[in-house]
Nucleic acid binder design. Structure first.
Length: 100
DNA sequence: CATATGACACTAT
DNA sequence: AATAGTGCCATAT
């Protein structure tokens, strides 16, 4: 199973209304400092929307990127009741803790 | 095998 | 608090 496949597997566990970060996912799959690599995987994500890649944001709460435009990402999150203010999300409120 | 790339993260200003 | 550097890792060339 490739690195990206593992990322999709973990991300699959993130529930609606919650989010996680690139770095967290990297950690979850056992690759510290692999946040950037996770971004690459998300960028390709062949399992959308089965795999909620829009629930992955930056460690500082900023939205981060999205293949079809960050604006779309924000909309989707808001539809799931995730509050986004000035391109930022309150991690304390919406961050989903991944098992390590 | 060597380099370049990108949806990041951390530290020091 | 906001910004600039620098490091990082899987993939693609």
């Amino acid at each position: 199973m490739s690195f990206s496949e593992k990322c999709y597997a973990v991300l699959r566990k993130v529930p609606r209304g919650k989010v996680t970060t690139y770095g967290e996912i990297a950690r979850a799959v056992g690759v510290l400092g692999g946040a950037r690599a996770v971004g690459n995987a998300m960028n390709k994500n062949p399992y959308a929307p089965e795999v909620p890649c829009h629930r992955v944001i930056c460690s500082d709460g900023k939205i981060g990127g999205f293949a079809t435009g960050s604006a779309k990402k924000v909309k989707m999150l808001e539809k799931e009741n995730v509050e986004v203010r000035n391109w930022k999300v309150d991690l304390e409120k919406h961050k989903f803790i991944l098992r390590r």
